[in-house]
Amino acid sequence: MLQLTLFYIFAVLAVLGGIMVVVHRNPIYSALSLILTLFALAGEYILLMAHFIAIVHIAVYAGAIMVLFLFVIMLLNIRIEERAPGALRYMVYIGVPMAAILFLQLGYLAFKGFQEVYVKNTDVGTVERIGQALFSKYVLPFEITSILLVVAMVGAVYLSKRKLEIVE
């Protein structure tokens, strides 16, 4: 019962966030609403016993990608709905068919009726299981990834340090 209640709370939050992304006139509010949606979805993942995906979802989407979004919005300094006239007209031609396809798919699923799925191993997605896999079978790829990240960091620091003058 608690699970179901939580599911509905998260679901309502996710949909509300989604609507606010579209409705808000200020792009920064839109971006912040998207973060709300992403957090709500992470809550749903936790209810599905996919703890790891929930954490990664928050860290990657709500963390890294949204910060990137906000950076771009702030760097471009877009005020309220500054958009090229006429751009929206073309969007309609793409957006409406896309939405129609999406709703058709949803309708098809609802019409067909959902199948109940029983998950036998409920701890597949937990952090413990993933940690065990990472440090036993996949320990070598895990360590190589650490080198990969060091390389990326060193490269980023080197290429972006100090000001430079470009010569032809």
Partner: peptide, 23 residues
């Protein structure tokens, strides 16, 4: 998996090294 990780480690280092004459 190891092929992919090795390839990326090599490539990312090479991307940076290609731009080493920053000026």
């Amino acid at each position: 998996m190891t092929i992919f990780l090795g390839l990326e480690t090599m490539s990312i280092a090479l991307y940076v090294m290609a731009g080493f004459r920053r000026t």
